[in-house]
Design a protein around this nucleic acid. Structure first.
Lengths: 299, 299
DNA sequence: TAAGGTTACGGCGATCGTAACGATC
DNA sequence: GATCGTTACGATCGCCGTAACCTTA
């Protein structure tokens, strides 16, 4: 058994059990891959893959039952390499952050600024993506840390930390009826709504609140991006239902924000990163900064 | 990086960083080990070991920080091998049980008999040892499962399952004053005591009970073995303070057992096995049998 | 000087690449 | 015949063992 054989198993999974593709990925010729697989199976004493003729069409139960261990070894190997390269120059490196537009624009600026002060040598790459993509980014190791609100529960091999809690608000032009008076779900539901796309920024909490009150929402625009929503609110298309922190009293002074904390339950923005994955010191520090910034926030 | 280099790191730890001993353990010459270590350090870019002259005297912080991953890889590798050899003939194999005398004699016979009925092809090796040794047996992979009462809490990388709870009893000859009347700690403390050695079979619970009552015990004999205790009780040396389940109404009919459940808090016998360690199907079944037998017991 | 570690060098074996072949769609 | 996998064979590179050498208790 050797590490390239272990790696081969991983690559084979990624290539739908195609030996030729796997060989390409591993920068060796296909025949070498074929032999290595045979050698490994011979060493273990029984096949790891089901074959139809010569084609690999699936894994044997033995193959399946060792894949956990295979993944563990590959993870640990990558971790060793990261730890070592990290050690060489501990304050240089790259931090990959995956997040959604709302977080990137309204929450991250402060913690990122603080982080850059402390680690000026670390390059920051920010990837914007949908909540589901965020998790893929982590799994593909394209991101070290993800920050988002929805769809991150119940994913195993992720570590989740609640960063901060916040409430939704509505935003309307000053002359809109909802700019005045007591806000209720009933009143809101009488107007066309502009809010986040499904799966974004606490959208599910919005759904739940109105569903429970047996009210239907007339969502005429769904965007993944608060700025788009605000733009169309300004045009008078309807009521913007956005994250409270996305209202800026200065920039948005032509709009009125009304807090909905009594109507829609709080959403929590979370920090997610891979379990069993080595994070360099500066990444851990960044997470610290996020948590601190989260505590300072009170939207 | 390759698996033997990873293994080398483990072996070096076990040999107090002695390259020659490590080479011996790995069945290669010392110069090969020296070179492999250099190659690995070169690959990672910085040394893993502190050196005084040429001698290895400790690990660098890099070395220390990768040892977790190293251990993980070694574990996973061993697991793969176990899973595979297990797969070859799933109902043959060997089950190594580490336990103390009391468990071996009074608790294990029934679950082991049941286990043998279901897996007649599995050889059972039982190692008797002190509670501390039990844990070493697990870590050294000399045992798959350990069953014992004391000293197993707070050890990381062990999985613990409570098997059953039991109480202490005293045993005395029929003519002894304690054979009659209400049993109290005060009464017991007036006689010479024969009980378990320190660290064995709930001994710490005994200590605690008498300490809290501000009573001193005159322990004139401490054995790791209930039979020794009973033998000397028969000779009239004093009061035997033993695990309740170690009194056999038939074999020990010349002795009287008095329950102490109202005086000494219950002890719990636990099943311990290594986290992250592959156990074959039959071993898991054995643990099931232990839990079942534990539930049936009511000492 | 014994014990532990490094360096130099030759040889062997593991693994790769080339290439021809076999199977399956 | 295109794709995918296996087998054969020669070449290469990695790794081991021998052996001489260095260093420190």
């Amino acid at each position: 058994m050797n590490l390239s054989q272990i790696e081969l198993l991983r690559v084979l999974q990624e290539t739908n059990l195609n030996l030729s593709k796997a060989a390409e990925k591993m920068h060796i010729v296909q025949s070498a891959v074929s032999r290595q697989l045979q050698l490994f199976e011979a060493e273990l004493g029984s096949p790891l893959f089901e074959r139809q003729g010569k084609k690999l069409v699936g894994m044997t139960s033995l193959g399946l039952s060792i894949m956990d261990e295979v993944a563990t070894i590959n993870r640990a190997k990558a971790n060793i390499q990261h730890i070592a390269s990290d050690f060489l120059d501990s304050n240089k490196g790259t931090l990959h952050i995956a997040t959604t537009h709302t977080q990137a624009k309204y929450f991250l600026p402060k913690p990122i600024a603080r982080f850059r002060e402390k680690y000026p040598g670390v390059n920051i790459y920010m990837v914007q993506a949908s909540p589901e993509q965020l998790i893929d980014q982590l799994h593909n190791r394209k991101a070290d840390v993800a920050i988002c609100t929805e769809r991150v529960d119940l994913v195993p091999d992720l570590i989740l930390e609640t960063c901060y809690r916040w409430y939704h608000s509505i935003v309307v032009p000053h002359e809109h009826p909802l700019a005045e008076g007591l806000i209720t779900l009933e009143r809101i539901s009488q107007y066309p709504i502009l809010t986040y796309s499904f799966g974004y920024t606490g959208r599910s909490n919005i759904e739940n609140a109105f569903n429970q009150a047996n009210l239907e929402l007339d969502i005429i625009l769904a965007a993944s991006d608060t700025d788009v929503i605000k733009t169309y609110v300004r045009l008078g298309l309807g009521v913007g239902l956005i994250a409270g922190m996305a209202y800026d009293p200065i920039v948005d002074k032509d709009l009125v924000a009304r807090d909905l904390s009594h109507l829609i339950s709080s959403s929590s923005t979370k920090i997610a990163y891979l379990k069993h994955n080595y994070l360099p010191q500066y990444s851990k520090h960044f997470i610290e900064e996020l948590l601190i910034a989260g505590k300072e926030n009170s939207y």
